[in-house]
């Protein structure tokens, strides 16, 4: 059986089925939605970080752009949810396009400039001067389109599409060529790989995923503030989950979300600072001792993981 098909059957399909039936077994739909959201975002981050080595610290900027693209479409343009989703996704991609020149920078500068860009978008959206469009710092309410069940299902559909795209990246010539760019851009160019184009495609795919996820998020929770949609914590979570599980694989980010976000929610969030401390320590420990994530315990021994 071809590897790609095997990954779809044994990884993508079970995850999507479980996510789809989970609301029938467990009542806390908001929590389930958060899981679906992070499963998707971690894979979106994986597309750019795992495959090209470029870490978008400001990934939440694209997510927030998607959320506000959705919100403005509903509030100002009066669009129905599905059209607003398309606008949200487009907003994410547009921001991604705007930031493509950053891909000429080497990795660390990309990461910092990306974070600065996310902050800038947040500052624009939350600026009281734009209150007529974005409602500024006062937040948006989209109660007229509120549909928790339907938006959850759309979230699962986005997750399914994302996982399929990642299964393709993991098993395609294009995905392998991207990894060559990550390893050594000059050698990759000499192997005939179009370095800048490859990075651009991966980044736009990543931006599309984040924009779409942001739009679905806006729809699902329907009342939110700029601080919610541009919470840097969202970038942090997506990064830590991906690093913890193992970037550039399909199951790494999945593992990361299930284990870490699972633990996070089981213990409960009484004092957020303690979690911040633990996550910080986890990042330091990972970089020092397990820079390639949990899956590297297997890959080091020459075992291929999906």
């Amino acid at each position: 059986m071809r590897r790609g098909l095997r990954d779809v059957l044994f990884v993508v399909l079970p995850v999507v089925i479980i996510a789809a039936v989970a609301p029938l077994l467990y009542a806390n739909e908001l929590l389930l939605f958060s899981f679906v959201m992070y499963l998707t975002l971690a894979q979106g981050l994986n597309a750019i970080y795992g495959f090209t080595g470029y870490l978008p610290f400001g990934y939440v900027g694209v997510f927030g752009a998607g959320a506000y693209g959705f919100a403005i479409s509903v509030m100002i343009l009066g669009l129905p949810p599905f059209a607003a989703l398309a606008i949200g996704a487009a907003a994410g991609v547009m921001l991604g396009l705007l930031l493509t020149p950053l891909l000429r920078l080497s990795g660390a500068y990309f990461a910092i400039a990306n974070l600065a860009a996310a902050q800038a978008v947040y500052q624009v959206v939350s600026n009281p001067a734009l209150q007529d469009i974005t409602k500024g710092p006062y937040g948006v309410s989209l109660s007229e389109v509120f549909a928790p069940r339907l938006s959850y299902e759309v979230g699962v559909a986005v997750l399914a599409a994302t996982l399929l795209a990642m299964a393709w990246l993991r098993n395609s010539r294009f995905g392998l060529s991207l990894q060559a760019i990550r390893e050594d851009p000059i050698s990759a160019a000499m192997a005939g790989v179009a370095v800048v184009r490859g990075r651009t495609i991966a980044w736009l795919l990543s931006a599309l995923i984040a924009g779409l996820t942001g739009a679905v998020f806006a729809w699902h929770i329907s009342v939110f503030y700029p601080e919610t949609a541009f919470d840097i914590g969202i970038s942090i979570f997506a990064t830590v989950f991906t690093l913890f599980g193992g970037a550039a694989t399909l199951i790494g980010p999945l593992l990361g979300v299930l284990v870490l976000y699972g633990v996070y929610n089981t213990i409960g969030i009484t004092v957020p600072q303690y979690f911040q401390l633990i996550y910080g320590a986890l990042i330091v420990g990972l970089v020092l001792f397990l820079p390639d994530g949990l899956v590297s315990l297997l890959t080091r021994r020459g075992i291929r993981v999906p």
Binding site: G53, L55, F57, Q276, L277, G280, A281, I283, L288
Partner: peptide
């Protein structure tokens, strides 16, 4: 890739310092 790894590592340290100071 020490440049990139340093970014991530010190980001973790940053989170720890912020958390401890807040506590």
């Amino acid at each position: 890739d020490s440049e990139m790894l340093s970014l991530i590592l010190f980001f973790g340290l940053q989170q720890m310092i912020e958390a401890v100071t807040s506590i």
